[in-house]
């Protein structure tokens, strides 16, 4: 049997066996090994121990541990369930907020003149017998402002409203239909001014020969034309925004405005460009949100 042994010595022998001693430690140990048969016997014992462990047979795994690609294949982030729908809902909610603040900004301060004429857009709406369209748009933005997964579904309503409005534009432009379209615009922006709206009716009739494929730009352009009567600067602003979409519609109001300089606006009738931009952004965002939501729903089903 082996003599009792210092742990430090055993550590040295163990490390020596694995070849992890420093050169100096190794030389010192080898010098002692050469002198001491006991130490050599201990090293042999340790070597046998390691050999026994290394001879331990390898066990056969009972099965393969491969992963099922159907369960573990990673999908792209945008194709995972719910991501697109959540994005769509969120952007619709953001759109609703934008439209809401745009409308707030464009609402003129309370004044006797504005409250007096505020009824007139409603009258136009009744004439056109299309109050539900306006209600739909207002409703949809109201529903969307409640931030919840239910924020996205209003999209079809808005789309329907837009397509009906588009019909009104592309059909032979009777005054009533044009007024209907304008009524919708007026309600959307809650314009309290009736006079510019009437001016706009005339101009939109003139602008009619160029129907657009993007109805809500036409809608907004109608608003632009109404604003154009109030000041020349406003009209040139509008031309800058809507130039590519409806060049003739913006050119004519400018002429019109130049021809009739006697129409002087009161400050309360001017809608700030910022407010209009916010509403435009809101509507675009609403459309993007709806499309994302629909794509998301479609992809999850397939």
């Amino acid at each position: 049997m082996m003599p009792p042994q210092a742990p430090e010595e055993f550590d040295l022998l163990s490390a020596y066996l694995d070849g992890v001693l420093s050169a100096r430690q190794r030389e010192a140990l080898e010098a002692r090994l050469a002198e001491s048969p006991d130490l050599r016997a201990q090293l042999d014992d340790l070597r046998a121990l390691r050999a026994t462990l290394r001879a331990a047979p390898t066990l056969q795994p009972p099965r393969n541990f491969t992963l099922d690609p159907a369960l573990y294949a990673r999908k792209a982030w945008w194709s995972r369930a719910g991501v697109l729908r959540t994005l769509g809902s969120l952007s619709a909610a953001a759109a609703a907020l934008l439209i809401f603040f745009g409308v707030l900004l464009s609402t003129p301060p309370e004044s006797p003149a504005s409250s007096g004429v505020a009824l007139q857009p409603t009258l136009i709406l009744r004439d056109a017998a299309t109050p539900t369209l306006a209600m739909l748009i207002v409703e949809s933005s109201a529903t969307a402002s409640a931030i919840s997964p239910a924020a996205a579904p209003p999209m079809p309503a808005t789309v329907a409203a837009q397509s009906v409005t588009a019909e009104a534009f592309s059909a032979a432009p009777t005054e009533q239909q044009t007024r209907a379209a304008l009524g919708v615009t007026a309600t959307m922006q809650i314009m309290a001014t009736a006079m510019p709206a009437f001016e706009a009716t005339e101009m939109t009739q003139r602008a009619m020969p160029t129907p657009t494929t993007f109805p809500e730009i036409a809608l907004l352009m109608a608003t632009e034309t109404s604003a154009a009567t109030t000041s020349v600067e406003e009209a040139s602003d509008a031309a800058g925004i809507g130039e590519s979409a409806l060049p003739t519609a913006t050119a004519r109001p400018m002429q019109h405005a130049a021809e009739e300089p006697e129409v002087t606006p009161t400050p309360s009738e001017v809608i700030s460009p910022t407010a209009r931009l916010i509403v435009v952004l809101g509507i675009i965002l609403l459309i993007i949100g709806g499309v994302l939501y629909l794509i998301g729903t479609f992809r999850v089903r397939t």
Binding site: P7, F10, D11, S14, A15, D18, V20, D45, L46, A48, L49, R50, T52, L53
Partner: peptide, 24 residues
């Protein structure tokens, strides 16, 4: 650390020594 590996292995071998000699 490498030092801990070294010392743990040495102590493990020390404890295994008698048992494995019996196996042999």
């Amino acid at each position: 650390s490498l030092g801990t590996v070294k010392s743990r292995l040495s102590r493990a071998r020390h404890k295994l020594r008698d048992c494995l000699r019996a196996v042999r």
